[in-house]
């Protein structure tokens, strides 16, 4: 029982992170109907900036301000000047630009800060006794913090989408960019803002996940698997659905924790293979995902 609880907790923790990355992808997909494969590397870059500032004596919480701001600016600028000009051509061109950003940002981070792993401080410091005993399992405070952050992000995003004028415009563009433009919406501006918001969410997710998930340090290859899991989570939930991203992320996190925990006969971790199976099954059976309404493929 306590082993089950322990796995459930670690699954929820990882799942919350996947869900946050999935949210970033969903926000982009809702506006420009594409997957930003460079989302993880944008986040990686801003997390390096945050780490670099802590090396200069900044408080870790304080570094989030410029880091998240940079995430917004970088993604918005990338959308405006790199993605939008090639959008009309075809999706291959968009994908290639995203892959270029992917390699470029990763390389740039390595160029500036070196390829050795960095110790990134925890946002919530924990000691040996910073946990709640829960039926024999240990619920560490940082797990609570990760889940709470997800709740906060989802809450804020839902609030923006459903209660503000900007959100109304974002929902209109998500439904049909052309009709939205006929309503007088500056669609390009909404694209930029959406990408920027995704950049903020992604940067926040990265800052939270680096100390919590293995390997626990900030390294160049760190975000790639997170992006894969985030993508699978978003696809599972439905690429245009906020609710889907959350459900997809949490079920993926818990599912992987259980499979890797109990499925020891597989001999070690098979997370990525499971991700492959999930992608193929979702695409085969329910291409819209669990809660999505729009397919990735544009006819």
């Amino acid at each position: 029982m306590d082993i089950f609880l322990t796995r459930l907790i670690s699954g929820m923790t990882a799942g919350s992170v996947y869900a946050m990355i999935a949210l970033a992808l969903v926000v982009v997909f809702r506006s420009s109907a594409t997957i930003n494969f460079a989302q993880g590397e944008f986040a990686l870059f801003t997390t390096y900036v945050s780490w670099w500032l802590t090396q200069h004596g900044w408080n870790i919480w304080l570094t989030l301000v410029p880091a998240l701001g940079l995430g917004f600016v970088m993604c918005a600028v990338a959308e405006r000047f790199l993605i939008r000009p090639v959008r009309k051509r075809d999706e291959t061109a968009v994908l290639i630009v995203a892959l270029a950003l992917f390699t470029g940002l990763n390389g740039l981070a390595g160029w500036i800060w070196g390829s050795d792993d960095k110790v990134y401080p925890r946002l919530v410091p924990i000691g040996d006794d910073s946990f709640l005993a829960l039926g024999g399992a240990r619920l560490y405070y940082d797990s609570i913090f990760v889940v709470l952050s997800l709740v906060l992000v989802v809450g804020a995003l839902s609030l923006v989408l459903n209660k503000t004028g900007l959100g109304l415009q974002m929902r209109a563009v998500a439904t049909n960019p052309e009709s939205a433009s006929l309503c007088g919406i500056k669609v390009g501006r909404i694209f930029m803002i959406s990408w920027g918001l995704a950049g903020v969410i992604g940067s926040l997710a990265a800052a939270i996940l680096v100390p919590v998930l293995p390997p626990g340090q900030l390294g160049l290859p760190g975000m790639f698997h997170m992006l894969i899991f985030g993508t699978v989570a978003a696809l599972l939930g439905g690429l245009d659905s906020v609710k889907g991203a959350v459900v997809g992320g949490l079920s993926l996190g818990v599912g992987l924790a259980m499979i890797n925990g109990y499925g020891s006969f597989f001999g070690g971790s098979i997370s990525l293979t499971v991700a492959l199976v999930v992608i193929v099954v979702v695409l085969g059976l329910k291409p819209n995902g669990l809660f999505g309404s729009r397919r990735l493929e544009r006819v």
Binding site: V97, G104, W111
Partner: peptide, 20 residues
């Protein structure tokens, strides 16, 4: 160059240049 990361950055720049 660039702590061994220059090629990644160069690829990115060239790739974007090619696309555009």
């Amino acid at each position: 160059i660039g702590q061994g990361q220059a090629s990644a950055v160069l690829f990115a720049v060239v790739l974007i240049a090619v696309i555009f």
